[in-house]
Amino acid sequence: MVLEADILKVFLYTGAALSTGIASLSAGFGEGYAAAHTARSIMRQPNASSVLTRTMLISQAVVESGAIFALVISMLLLFGGFTQGGADWAKAFSLLGAGLAIGLGCTGPNFGSGYSAARAIEGIGRNPSKSGRITANMLIGQAITESGTIFALVVSLLLLYTVPAQMSEPSLAKMIMKACAYITAGIVIGIGTFGPGTGIGYVAGKANISISKHSKDQGVITRTMFLGAAVSESTAIYALVISFLLIFVS
């Protein structure tokens, strides 16, 4: 049941397009939100414009990394040589699933990351003297927000490289089952990281603005943020577990 190269290309190109397309959409929102708040803060505090612009650039680079991951998966789908040697339906669906996983998976984290960056910039606009602390906290917050994206990246890479190109004992029933399992593995981590991503972004944003208001309590605020974020992340980890089970156990 080896697919023809042209049919496989349909899956590859769709996966590549969906991955970068959806990821860029959310990254654009996140970065734009951060930039808009930079503009507002500069309007209030023209003296601090240089530090605000620097923070904006740093935060946008971090938000962008989700889109970069998606772009990498797209490039691998397009140029990774998956058309050579042939593949069956299950592998074709796993390639589409890889694109969907990283594309959908970085949506929530990108929104959250952008929100966190915007709140940090607002905080720096209010209290420019504490910009170092706020930037450090912003980077930690964005990093833990992005862990959802990284789970999605891991699942995408697993779907690309650990799924065999052709099944050992092919049968129609098994093929349908496997195809469903692989594409679902992509979808589950994609949708599953949306909630935790936005949630942790909200936590990080509130922590940033709190540090700008009460900068002497930075330690306890960062610790509360970390604790809250670790608990919020648990649902993303459940999604990761289900995704692994679908890839390896099914």
């Binding site: 599953g192 990281t193 909630g195 936005t198 949630g199 936590v203 919020s232 459940y238």
Partner: peptide, 15 residues
């Protein structure tokens, strides 16, 4: 995972 994620995040933010 969508609902709990957002909800817990909101809780932690307010905390």
């Amino acid at each position: 995972a969508l609902g709990p994620g957002v909800g817990e995040g909101y809780t932690a933010g307010k905390a």
